[in-house]
Design a protein around this nucleic acid. Structure first.
Lengths: 149, 149
DNA sequence: GGGTTTGTTCATTTTGAATTGAACAATACC
DNA sequence: GGTATTGTTCAATTCAAAATGAACAAACCC
């Protein structure tokens, strides 16, 4: 099972430890502590801590607080809606935004081009790029909607 | 500009050389030969050859044949529809399929579980996983449709 | 306060994927 | 045929991202 998730997160560009952690939590009926993860997966405390942080940011795990013990225990959040939302927010949007910044700088660079024929070609290509990015932004909410049902 | 594409392909889990090659072709008014890529990008012949192959498989470049010279020259294909289609076909579908195989093996493994309570829990989780995969397969054609306009 | 448990940070190490480059086709041309 | 040109393959190398682990912080208990 864990293997399935390791493959899964790799497709999404996330490290294998994240897949292992989420996979283990996904098939654990009981919440697991950081220490449990370290022992059961054979990974370092550092990896487990980092991995849990990322998963929390993605909204893929929640900690069951309010326990008697002072340890925190983690559970997998299995709502697809939430997972997809977190991934888009944390991984995709930042890239789209930094891409837009760079394209913005390109627009300026092209305006300094002398050769009018070249300038027109570059303008067309940048327009194409901006078109792709618009489409990208359009498709995200649709994906979110379809998956969150 | 090339930087934009390097970032872009990295999000998709492809190596930077692919981003460089596609980026250069994207802003080149004239088709470029393998040798041009090697010189202008400062990458090895091996990288260029491999990268072009992957890009051809993705349908992201086409070679302009029918020239007098025996060299082949490459151009970027800038149809979003085609790019998305190629990516889904070459990168996403294979992973979805191998995932399904693994889940299939899981189903068998769970049926050998003694404890009925555990078995029920595992069944639920596997059902959840299969639900996610169904949704994944559903969303692909929708993405393709939205982006290909 | 001192001691213990739990979790984080971050410099170093490891590992796996990407790149290189040299040997090897394949094709064209004479 | 021989040789030049172009492109591919793949073992060896390089490099960036991930994992480690030790030092550090924070919270808790007595």
């Amino acid at each position: 099972m864990i293997e399935v998730f390791v493959d899964g997160v790799k497709v999404l560009g996330l490290p294998r430890s994240i897949g292992e952690i989420y996979g283990l939590l996904f098939i654990s009926p009981e919440p697991q502590s950081l220490d449990d993860l370290v022992h059961r997966l054979g990974i370092s405390k550092g990896s487990a801590s980092q991995g849990l942080r990322t998963l929390k940011e993605l909204g893929a795990v929640k900690d069951t607080s309010g326990s008697v013990s002072r340890r925190t225990y983690y559970q997998a959040d299995i709502e697809l809606k939430r997972l997809v939302g977190g991934f888009i927010r944390e991984q995709l949007r930042p890239h789209l935004e930094s891409g837009q910044l760079k394209v913005g700088r390109l627009v300026e660079a092209v305006s300094e081009q002398d050769d009018p024929e070249m300038q027109q070609f570059y303008d067309e290509r940048i327009e194409r790029l901006e078109f792709w990015m618009r489409r990208g932004r359009q498709v995200l909410p649709i994906v979110q909607k379809v998956l969150g049902q």
